[in-house]
């Protein structure tokens, strides 16, 4: 019964809301890679791993009034903020028994990061079968506009290591 949707509702509840579609996408991807029970399918897009299925699930929850979507103007562009509605809360309570639990501490930690950093972390994870030097080359070529520095990449690797240790 829309259990995949319920996991997203739980994520919104645990984090108190998420600002930005890109951030939401990267949080779910990273959490999935950290063995959280998300099942959405991701593909690499211009801005890193992206799931059309996830985009539609969020839209479905907005249309069902389970999630409130607010469009905010942020320095010249628009961003969408998502939070759990009362109706969504009721739905979540009703399916709680069937739902696989999500690590709320992990989700909160991811939510505290910037979406630019999460884009970098998810991209490193996407290429994690490659040697680090090749990953760095990929990042510099595919993400030239984001201008990630060596220190940013180092921070991303340290962050991933910390997440991996916790998920084992």
């Amino acid at each position: 019964m829309l259990l995949e949707h319920a996991k997203l509702l739980a994520m919104l509840k645990n984090t108190g809301g998420i600002a930005g579609r890109k951030k939401l996408q990267k949080m779910v991807y990273i959490a999935k890679r950290m063995k959280q029970p998300f099942r959405e399918k991701f593909q690499f897009h211009m801005y890193g791993p992206y799931s059309e299925e996830l985009t539609l699930q969020v839209e479905e929850m907005c249309n069902a009034s389970f999630v409130e979507e607010v469009r905010e103007k942020i320095s010249g562009y628009y961003q969408y903020r998502y939070s759990l509605s009362d109706k969504g809360e009721s739905f979540l309570q009703a399916v709680l028994e069937e739902e696989e639990p999500i690590d709320s501490q992990l989700m909160q930690e991811l939510n505290d990061c910037s979406s630019k950093f999460l884009e970098l972390v998810s991209t490193v994870l996407y290429f994690d079968e490659l040697p680090r030097q090749q990953v760095e080359e990929k990042i510099h070529r595919l993400k030239a506009r984001q201008n990630y520095q060596a220190a940013d990449i180092e921070e991303a690797y340290t962050f991933i290591e910390k997440l991996k240790q916790r998920s084992t």
């Binding site: 019964m1 829309l2 930005g20 992206y50 985009t55 479905e60 562009y77 628009y78």
Partner: peptide, 22 residues
């Protein structure tokens, strides 16, 4: 069985927000 639009491998055109999708 509940079947949702998100279960399908097709999509609409959506402009999206900055840096979400080209």
């Amino acid at each position: 069985v509940i079947d949702s639009s998100s279960d399908l491998p097709y999509d609409f055109y959506r402009p999206g927000e900055k840096d979400e999708r080209m």
